[in-house]
Simulated scan of single mutants.
Amino acid sequence: MRRSKRDLEIFSLSFLDIISCGFGAVVILILVSSNSKLPMPNTVEEASALLKEVINRKKIVEDLQYQLANEINDVASQDLILQNTKNKLKKLSQRQKSIVNLSENLQQDLAGLKLVQETLLKLNNVPNPQKIKSRSIVEVAGIPVDSDYVVFIVDTSGSMKEIWQRVTKELENILRIHPKIKGFQILNDNGAHILSGYKGRWIPDVPKRRESVLNLFKNWNSASNSSPVEGLEIALRRYANPNTKLSIYIIGDEYSGSSFDSVINVVANLNYNRASGKSLARIHAIGFISKYSTGRFATLMREVTRRNNGTFIAMPR
């Protein structure tokens, strides 16, 4: 029997199996070779260098963050300073306007002030003013000086203490134009007496007593709220009566109260003689200008003195 001749196939299934096995062996060799524990050159040195670089850059970033925080704080501080400066400028502008308005009103009082100063200079040339009879002096520069008793109500606030030497001088001048009075009292705007031992009584107007009280006044420190209402009320209740010829002098630079009408009404009720329908006391006022003055004291005192037979004098700077 004759065998049939088979065709020879180069890429038979067996051949492909062999090729696949060989390829697999090559892959295994490559994998084994890549996982070798042999040290790679320069790997440690490069890692160390990179770590140092990271640390340096982190430090640079931290420094930049610190500088940025400082810059932000500086900007915030500058903004706060700028805002405070704007607020101060606004307040100064408002105060300047108030002072300008007050100065315009004070110009009207300068003529009267000059007369007072001229009169005081003349009195200084009198050898012994205590010997002048009070009844011979009716008015000095428009201020009646025929009272037997005088009460001073003085603002003792910080702004007045800054000009206290001038205040003391004017108080001495007022006493001088009253050459002979029977007694006097000095209260602060809250109603505190300079001599508590004479509370409710008159301080005798004798030369030594007047001198000692004035020396005490030069160093007088007493709490104050820059409102003469309390002191004026105490003065009228304790010292004003139909049988006493009384003058009250209010000395200050500012009024801190809220309402003018309440002050005027209190004075109208207390300073009234129901029997005669006249005022119990003359009320005068001396207005000083300090850096805290706004004109409210002058406005109030003009009206109070006008209604109570008194005179308001505005002192220059």
Rank of each mutant, 00 (worst) to 15 (best):
residue 4 S to H: 05
residue 8 L to A: 07
residue 11 F to L: 06
residue 11 F to D: 06
residue 13 L to T: 14
residue 14 S to Q: 11
residue 15 F to Q: 07
residue 19 I to W: 12
residue 19 I to Y: 14
residue 21 C to G: 14
residue 21 C to Y: 11
residue 23 F to V: 14
residue 25 A to Q: 13
residue 26 V to F: 10
residue 27 V to C: 12
residue 28 I to T: 11
residue 31 L to G: 15
residue 32 V to M: 08
residue 34 S to M: 13
residue 34 S to Y: 12
residue 35 N to Q: 08
residue 36 S to K: 01
residue 39 P to Q: 09
residue 40 M to K: 11
residue 45 E to L: 08
residue 51 L to I: 11
residue 52 K to I: 07
residue 52 K to S: 09
residue 52 K to N: 11
residue 54 V to R: 11
residue 55 I to T: 10
residue 56 N to A: 12
residue 57 R to H: 13
residue 59 K to F: 09
residue 62 E to Y: 02
residue 62 E to L: 06
residue 64 L to H: 04
residue 68 L to Q: 10
residue 71 E to Y: 06
residue 73 N to V: 05
residue 75 V to I: 11
residue 78 Q to H: 10
residue 79 D to H: 14
residue 79 D to P: 10
residue 83 Q to F: 15
residue 84 N to F: 13
residue 89 L to F: 14
residue 90 K to T: 05
residue 92 L to I: 13
residue 93 S to Q: 09
residue 94 Q to L: 14
residue 97 K to P: 04
residue 98 S to K: 07
residue 98 S to E: 09
residue 100 V to Y: 09
residue 100 V to M: 08
residue 100 V to K: 09
residue 102 L to E: 07
residue 105 N to M: 08
residue 105 N to P: 00
residue 113 L to Q: 05
residue 116 V to R: 04
residue 118 E to Q: 04
residue 120 L to R: 01
residue 120 L to K: 02
residue 123 L to Q: 02
residue 127 P to H: 03
residue 132 I to D: 04
residue 132 I to A: 04
residue 134 S to R: 09
residue 136 S to W: 09
residue 136 S to G: 07
residue 139 E to W: 03
residue 141 A to W: 02
residue 141 A to E: 04
residue 142 G to L: 04
residue 143 I to M: 12
residue 147 S to M: 12
residue 147 S to T: 13
residue 151 V to H: 02
residue 153 I to K: 02
residue 157 S to A: 07
residue 159 S to Y: 05
residue 159 S to F: 04
residue 160 M to W: 00
residue 160 M to K: 00
residue 162 E to W: 04
residue 162 E to T: 11
residue 164 W to G: 03
residue 165 Q to D: 10
residue 169 K to H: 15
residue 169 K to D: 15
residue 170 E to I: 12
residue 170 E to L: 14
residue 171 L to C: 11
residue 171 L to V: 15
residue 178 H to F: 14
residue 179 P to I: 06
residue 179 P to R: 06
residue 185 Q to W: 01
residue 186 I to N: 01
residue 189 D to C: 08
residue 193 H to Y: 15
residue 194 I to P: 00
residue 196 S to F: 10
residue 197 G to K: 15
residue 199 K to H: 11
residue 203 I to P: 06
residue 207 P to E: 13
residue 210 R to L: 09
residue 214 L to E: 10
residue 220 W to T: 06
residue 224 S to K: 09
residue 224 S to R: 06
residue 225 N to W: 04
residue 230 E to D: 15
residue 232 L to S: 05
residue 235 A to M: 03
residue 235 A to V: 02
residue 236 L to T: 08
residue 246 L to D: 00
residue 246 L to W: 01
residue 247 S to K: 04
residue 247 S to M: 03
residue 251 I to K: 02
residue 253 D to G: 01
residue 253 D to R: 03
residue 254 E to H: 14
residue 258 S to T: 14
residue 261 D to T: 06
residue 261 D to A: 09
residue 267 V to S: 03
residue 274 R to E: 02
residue 281 A to V: 00
residue 284 H to L: 00
residue 285 A to L: 04
residue 288 F to N: 04
residue 288 F to M: 03
residue 288 F to E: 02
residue 295 G to H: 01
residue 298 A to H: 03
residue 306 R to D: 06
residue 307 R to A: 07
residue 308 N to F: 07
residue 310 G to H: 03
residue 313 I to N: 12
residue 314 A to S: 12
residue 316 P to Q: 04
